[in-house]
Amino acid sequence: MMYEKVGPARFISHLDLLRTFGRAARRAGLPLAFTQGFNPHPKITFAAPLAVGISGEAEFADLELTEKIPAPFVARALSDALPEGLRVLEVRQLKGAGPALMAMVRSASYRVEAKTCGPVTAGELKDALGSFLSRQEILVERKNNEGKKVLYDLRPGIFVMSGRLDNDIIKIEAELKTGSSGNVRIEEVLEAFLKSSRLPVQGGYALFRNNLYTVAGKEKKMLWQT
């Protein structure tokens, strides 16, 4: 299933999203498969968790039903039962148990919109991006499992990053390493960039994840195309 998570729905946490889809499926009358045990939960697996607050424009999840139901019907019924900001874009039926979605994801593309609070020229933005990306390593602090601070290098995980000016809004596009073999978060990249570039941006910005990619052979592919 490919879905969108925007507007007020982008504040739904990962755990709440599972519940939300489970309830939507029940409202839609879809026979969702449940896990066994004292607290059964619906069998839904998400391709890559999306941090609270980021709009997801093409998110992916697998869901398991107990009956065979035509994919377009599932898409429409589920979409109609979702709260504001969540919408199913397309459903495709898996042929047999394929590889886990989560293990397939390699990268994700993002869009950032940040309001400037002072004059910036297109040239300045270009130079700032150039010098940011030319760095050998971009170290940020992360907490490891024991809660200790460790340094992590973002640079290898930034595959593409570009930007342009749209009046007083800086728009940045980036493709970042995502998935179980390593994860670079857009907020980390953005903070590191704004810190080093000293561009005049006031606090908040809007973040969008517009796609997830995998690798098939040597080719990068949309998660959907495999």
């Binding site: 007020p8 709440d16 309830r23 609270v52 709009s55 709260p83 504001e84 919109e113 908040g204 910005y205």
Partner: peptide
């Protein structure tokens, strides 16, 4: 609207869903 003040502070507070609205049947 994504960049208005409320939208800017929501990502900075705990449990922003408390203030986002848009729930089912609202």
């Amino acid at each position: 609207t994504e960049l208005d003040f409320l939208e800017q502070i929501l990502p900075l507070v705990k449990k922003p869903a408390r203030y986002a609205g848009g729930e089912w049947n609202a």
